[in-house]
Design a protein around this nucleic acid. Structure first.
Lengths: 151, 151
DNA sequence: ATAAAGTCTATATTTTTAGTAGTCTATTTG
DNA sequence: CAAATAGACTACTAAAAATATAGACTTTAT
C-alpha cells in the first residue's frame, strides 16, 4: 500500500494539473479542495518542490504550480519521492539498491527473481504514466475535457 | 516494500519446499538455516498454518511441513496472509476493498484507475508464481549461465 | 510598513513492525 | 506414567515509521 502522504501528493498534483498555466494555487485551496490536512500538505509540497516537480512563489499572489507540463511528470517519480523505491525488496531496486543481509547468494535467490519481475511490471506502468495521462483516463470516461491544455 | 516478516516467511517456505515429503522440519532448523529470529518465526509459521499453507506436528519428531505440493502454493496468497492486500490503494483491492474517504467520485479517479492496472500487473505475476516456480527459476538461471560458457 | 504566503525546525501522537518472554498443550518414548 | 520434546498461545515491549501540529522565520506585493 502507498502511504497517505503519497496519495495526498498525487491528488494535489492532479489539482495543479487542472490549473496548469493559470498561475499559482494556494496551499489553503489545495488543502480544502482535496481534503488534506494543511500543515501536512505543506511538507509534501515542499518535498516535491525540492525535487523539482513543483515551483512556488512566496508573498501575496503566491502559491504552488507545476514546474513542468503535466505530461512531463510521471507517477513513478512522485511515488519514489514521497514513498521511497518502487521495488518490493531492496535487492531489486534500480534507484536504491541494497543487499539483503540474510541472503546467501543473491543471483540464485528465486524470491529476488520474482520480485524483480514485479518491480519491472510496476515501473513499466508508473514510469510511463504522467499526470496528463491520468487526466486522459478520466476524460475517456467522462467524454469531457478535464484539463485546459492539449495533449 | 514487503515486510521482513513476509521475506522471512517466503524463505522458510522455500526451505520447506526443498524438504517436501521428507517429514516435518523443526522451527529451530528453519530459524538457524534461514537466519530468522526463532520466536518471530514461530508466529509467522503459525499464521501460515492457520491459513492452510502449512501443517504441523507437536512433540518429539514434530515440526512443520507444507500442507500442499509446492506447485500449489502461490506467492500472492502468502504475501496477502503476511503483509495484507497486494493493491497499492485499498479502493482497488479485490480481497480487501475499502473506499477512500477523501475520494469524491471513485469511478472518475485517475489515480485509482492507474493503481488498478498496477494491482493487476502485480497479481498476474504473484498469483501465478508458485513456490515450485521459484525453485525452477533458480535452476533455469544456473543452466543458462552454464550454457553461455559452453557455446 | 504590513499583510499574505511559503519555509523551516521541532515536537507530538498514533500505528505498525519486529522481536521477546513465559506458560500451556500435545506427542513420543523409556 | 513420567520426562523430554516441540509446537500453540497470550502478552508484552522497544523501535521505527507514519501522520500529523505548532510556531517562528523569510520573502514579496502593495
Amino acid at each position: 500500500m502507498i502511504s497517505s502522504k503519497t496519495k495526498y501528493g498525487l491528488h494535489a498534483l492532479m489539482h495543479l494539473s487542472h490549473k496548469y498555466n493559470k498561475g499559482p494555487v494556494l496551499i489553503a485551496e489545495l488543502a480544502r479542495e482535496e481534503k488534506i490536512p494543511k500543515k501536512f500538505l505543506e511538507l509534501i509540497l515542499l518535498d516535491l518542490k525540492n525535487h523539482g516537480i513543483l515551483e512556488s512563489k512566496k508573498g501575496k499572489g503566491g502559491g504552488y504550480q507545476l514546474a513542468r507540463h503535466p505530461s512531463e511528470v510521471n507517477i513513478g517519480q512522485v511515488i519514489r519521492i514521497l514513498d521511497g523505491p518502487l521495488a518490493p525488496v531492496s535487492c531489486v531496486s534500480q534507484t536504491a539498491y541494497k543487499r539483503c543481509n540474510e541472503c546467501k547468494d543473491e543471483h540464485h535467490c528465486g524470491i529476488r527473481l520474482v520480485m524483480k519481475d514485479v518491480r519491472e511490471a510496476m515501473a513499466n506502468i508508473l514510469d510511463r504514466t504522467s499526470l496528463a495521462d491520468m487526466g486522459v483516463r478520466i476524460k475517456n470516461f467522462k467524454s469531457d475535457s478535464m484539463f485546459n491544455f492539449q495533449i
